[in-house]
């Protein structure tokens, strides 16, 4: 799969001297859904705004479909659509006028049938003559999506698209995203809902302190970096974890009947056999055993923690 977006060594320092991006490099493949994860202030929005031309950057280069966003900004920007994080809309315009206005800004001639189709798909058609200030937060979010898609972009940035939206809208939005992917649109999204990234993304990138810590296929990331959790349900409750089991760093639940053991699937010795042998030697009766794959969220938190430790050390 060829790359549609190439970000090379991009740095951005704000006027208040805060370095939001630090020689950041990233490549996005054509047609993929890429989830950018990171804690608050990591540089997610700055990165998106920089690629879209909303912010200047100090060094590095960015190309969209081989077009430099500084020297060939007209062609490059016309390929991009952005749904910002905040619900920023004019107050007194109608949905219809405002979405058509967005299309015009991107240099596209009016296409009322396309805008009608878009508004219908986003359940906005019935309210097309309503003023923007009369809309609920969820409806405003839909309008922002319609505006971003009004000029039929090839690359769509969704900056925290599901922040403060209801379940129905979230479902509708992911339907639209899936449809866009089928049409070949590349989607880059930032989200705090890691389960969303797990569900919808092809690849995941983790950003912290203005740098990309890691980029990988979602499945591979979970597989490679994931830890597994072994849950041992005991037939009888115990008061405390026996001292013989101390080396396994077990945890016990509040009902005192389930032991939790975290192990690394990549390790040579998972320790499961030794643990079960010790339990048998202690005469403890087992009721059930189960394992769980660690989530993207725990991977994300571990990586961010590691990166912050590394930064503190340096």
């Amino acid at each position: 799969m060829s790359e549609i977006l190439k970000i090379s060594n991009v740095s951005k320092v704000y006027n208040n001297k805060f370095q939001a991006l630090n020689k950041l490099s990233l490549k996005i493949k054509k047609g993929e859904i890429f989830a950018l994860l990171g804690p608050n202030g990591a540089g997610k929005s700055t990165l998106i705004n920089t690629v879209c031309g909303i912010l200047n950057f100090d060094e590095g280069s960015i190309t969209v479909d081989e077009l430099d966003i500084k020297t060939q900004y007209r062609k490059a920007r016309s390929l991009i659509g952005i749904v910002p994080q905040e619900l920023n809309l004019e107050a007194f315009e109608t949905i219809w006028d405002n979405v058509n206005y967005s299309r015009g800004l991107y240099g596209k001639p009016p296409n009322h049938s396309y805008i009608e189709k878009l508004l219908k798909e986003l359940s906005l058609w019935e309210k097309k003559d309503n003023k923007l200030r009369e809309l609920s937060g969820g409806m405003k979010r839909r309008v922002l999506i319609a505006k971003a898609l009004s000029h039929e972009p090839k690359v769509l940035f969704l900056d925290e698209p599901t922040a403060s939206v209801d379940v129905e809208l979230r479902k509708d939005m992911w339907e639209v995203v899936k449809r866009l992917k089928q049409e070949g649109v590349t989607i880059i999204l930032t989200t705090h809902y890691i389960e969303e990234a797990e569900e919808i993304a092809d690849r995941v990138g983790i950003i912290n302190n203005g740098r990309i810590i890691l980029v990988d296929e979602k499945e591979s990331l979970i597989k490679k970096l994931g830890q597994k959790i072994l849950k041992i349900e005991l037939a009888e409750t115990i008061d405390k974890i026996p001292s013989n089991l101390g080396i396994f760093n077990l945890e016990i639940n509040s009902d005192k009947n389930i032991l939790t053991y975290i192990y690394d699937t990549k390790g040579e010795n998972t320790g499961i056999t030794s643990l079960l042998s010790e339990i048998k030697a202690l005469g403890m009766q087992l009721k059930d055993i189960s394992t769980e794959q660690s989530s993207l969220e725990s991977i994300f938190l571990n990586l961010v923690k590691e990166s912050e430790n590394e930064l503190a050390r340096s």
Partner: peptide
């Protein structure tokens, strides 16, 4: 007004000189 309402992002992101 677009600066105040933060809708200026659209003007800056559009392929406009």
């Amino acid at each position: 007004f677009p600066k105040f309402t933060n809708t200026v992002y659209e003007l800056l992101a559009a392929p406009l000189s």
